[in-house]
Amino acid sequence: MTHSTGVTTTTGQDALALAGRALIALLFIPAGFSKIGGFAGTAGYIASKGLPLPEVAAAIAIAVELGLGLMLLFGWRTRLAALGIALFTVVATFIFHNFWAMPAEQVMQQQQAFFKNIAVVGGLLAFMAFGPGRWSLDARTGRH
């Protein structure tokens, strides 16, 4: 089917785009909910990394993970949501998974987490570049 942008996709491609959005959102939405329930612990962990205003940073993390995660899931303002989550993830990855500054026994685990996050950023950038597919609120509202 041809979109309003002139791009043609198949039902299979649209199904894969929906599945991709859901799988990436599955990483962020539960994390946002857990930060609400464990707000003090989240702020404490952020403070332990030396960041200023840890409560504000925790609130931003919740807004990004939960708010932008839901936007990505439903395909609403998908490109904006994907970019926001990608930028947040890059910043958080360099702060919280800085394997190069970890004790030797933590390097492998933190390096894996670092590169997994960077791979997720790659998926988010693909949604920014190509949009959410036809099975999205963006497609229904002509925001493709």
Rank of each mutant, 00 (worst) to 15 (best):
R21W: 01
A47H: 00
A31R: 07
T8I: 09
T11F: 10
G44P: 09
K116N: 09
A63N: 11
L27T: 14
H3A: 12
Q112W: 08
A58I: 12
A119I: 00
L70W: 02
V107S: 09
P52Q: 08
F39H: 05
F115C: 11
T93H: 03
T42G: 09
T11S: 07
T9S: 05
P30Y: 10
L51N: 05
G37Q: 08
V7R: 12
F130H: 07
R21L: 01
L87G: 15
F115P: 13
E65P: 06
E55G: 15
I29E: 07
S4Y: 00
A129D: 04
V120E: 04
G131D: 08
A81W: 02
Y45N: 15
A139Y: 11
I85N: 03
R79C: 15
V121R: 02
V91Q: 09
E65Y: 08
K49W: 07
G20S: 12
L16P: 10
G131L: 06
G75C: 06
S48M: 03
A63K: 08
S48F: 02
I24W: 02
R21V: 09
I118D: 14
V90N: 11
L68R: 04
M108P: 15
L83K: 00
I46F: 07
L137C: 09
R134S: 14
F127C: 11
A126Q: 08
A81Q: 06
E105R: 11
V64G: 01
A40H: 01
M102A: 14
T78H: 04
K35Q: 11
N98C: 07
G6E: 14
R143K: 00
D138M: 06
I29F: 05
I46G: 02
A139H: 14
L51F: 02
G6K: 04
E55A: 15
R134L: 07
Q109M: 13
I60Y: 09
G122I: 04
I36L: 05
T11P: 08
A63M: 02
M1R: 04
R77C: 12
T11D: 06
H97M: 04
L53G: 10
L137H: 10
G69M: 01
S4F: 03
T141M: 09
V120M: 07
A17R: 06
T9C: 05
T141H: 07
L83P: 02
L125R: 03
M71V: 13
